[in-house]
Design a protein around this nucleic acid. Structure first.
Lengths: 265, 265
DNA sequence: ATCATTGTTCCATTATTTGGAACTTAATTT
DNA sequence: AAATTAAGTTCCAAATAATGGAACAATGAT
């Protein structure tokens, strides 16, 4: 939970839109469709106001209201997302290099970028197992307990890093999850020196990864790529070996970005 | 073009949100990131107003503004969509039956629902080829030239059907695309009798399919499933044979919905 | 049948959005 | 390099939309 960047209910300077987005967040983050009364309790707004807001969201297809009067995320969001994804330049450039890395290692490869306090996964290339589409793509995961997340944090200038880390609220997903700013910052410094990051079962028990940072020159995209797999198969020794190919792939992606986007700036 | 339901620039009764969604549509439907001036020309609004609206959308992560001052769809949309998709009950119930159908035929199977004038694809199960994730899922396609779309239309009560068809603006994607309400309505009537629909290369040259309608009891979901493939492999004779298994799979999905959702109503 | 809960509509008040113009910055031309 | 033009940003009184309390309807439980 609290996976997305909005986190605390801070007042945003986005007027009417901000209020509606809070509601959209609320409904999409819920574990099941919510009744009007449920939303009422969560949103803490006057009934009349809330009713109109929800109506507008439904009218626009951002939410859906089923026959039982329960609100669920709307399918129009899928259409928007499909477009957003299909045309994303960072992903388009990275794609072949992710596939190469997958073939070289046989394990699952991810591409993610930092947005607020979260890593949003842009692509995933899996091995032979039947792919569960959408499974990871689009997912927002915390930056402080994922390989890509920590790699991304290592790209931030000192001040931004401290600010961002200070604003985190740590959830202990496993026994190894960072739960303090101090230990996290210490590891980030180490990652910045080394040029690669590990996830030692910090987000999900039994899953670990090695990641390298990737960024675009204009800093629109700051994220990373990772090789992920089950801990029983990916020893720390193996992950250390893979640090090199991950960094090389990251370098090739950045070179691709430079060639593609550089001339224009 | 005009793939989603919003189609004509009809004034929506959704106040501020509606105006912002028009902008979001505009930017996400463009073929490339748009400069402020481009959006200005397309939206036809005062500069000051537009500037604030775009700022709000960017602030909320629905749009992104790169270093060159170009607006692109925001990645926060991916997060919303991933949640919308992950929890969609219709898809969850249909999934195993889609996989069965894929195995039985060896061809690609789709699940889609009608939203406005568009079919939004909720799932796709492909054969052995490496799956291009997101490739079709989330995509909005016209209802009048896809198998799933025509199957969905055959579920509508006469009056709604006529209204919807009247509001369509036909684009001739191939030589076989319906371009008139009359021929389309005639085929829909036929489909309603038969219980299955074909796409004879009407949306994409060389691609055809057979589809059967699927709906939930409360009519929240009206759509269909299809077996799709290249015309050279899928003769009309073969598609006719597959009409039976597609209809059977559709029936099993609906039974699954009844069991899962029925008790609550 | 009655009461309690949930969901919807209404409207004066309040807050936000609007749009024109002035202003700043960046790009282009002379 | 200076002048010119275009692009992008900020400001504020007027227009518009959102708010929230209360009354109203629909649903469901006792």
């Amino acid at each position: 939970m609290d996976a997305n960047g909005s986190g605390a209910a801070q007042a945003r300077e986005t007027g009417t839109l901000g209020k509606l987005m809070v509601l959209l967040d609320l409904v999409t983050h819920a574990d099941a469709p919510l009744r009007f009364t449920d939303v009422l309790a969560l949103a803490g707004q006057p009934r009349g106001t809330l009713h109109r807001q929800l109506s507008h969201l439904v009218e626009e297809g951002l939410l859906e209201l089923d026959g039982d009067g329960r609100y669920a995320p709307g399918l129009r969001l899928l259409d928007f997302a499909a477009r957003s994804w299909a045309r994303n330049e960072f992903r388009l450039i990275a794609e072949p290099h992710l596939a190469d890395l997958q073939r070289a290692t046989g394990e699952t490869v991810h591409l993610g970028v930092l947005r607020g306090q979260s890593i949003i996964y842009l692509d995933k290339v899996e091995g032979r197992q039947p792919v569960r589409m959408y499974s990871q793509i689009g997912n927002a995961s915390p930056c402080y307990c994922t390989g890509v997340g920590k790699a991304a944090l290592s790209l931030l200038p000192a001040e931004s890093l401290v600010d961002l880390v200070a604003s985190l609220s740590f959830t202990s997903f496993t026994a190894s999850t960072h739960v303090s700013a101090e230990t996290l910052l210490a590891e980030i410094r180490e990652i910045a020196d080394q040029g690669y990051a590990f996830d030692r079962e910090e987000h999900e028990a039994g899953i670990c990864c090695v990641a390298a940072p990737v960024w675009s020159e204009d800093r629109t995209f700051m994220g990373g790529i990772s090789i992920t797999g089950p801990a029983y198969r990916l020893s720390m020794e193996l992950l250390h070996q893979w640090a090199v190919p991950v960094q090389l792939a990251a370098g090739r992606i950045m070179e691709g970005m430079r060639v593609r986007l550089g001339p224009r700036r």
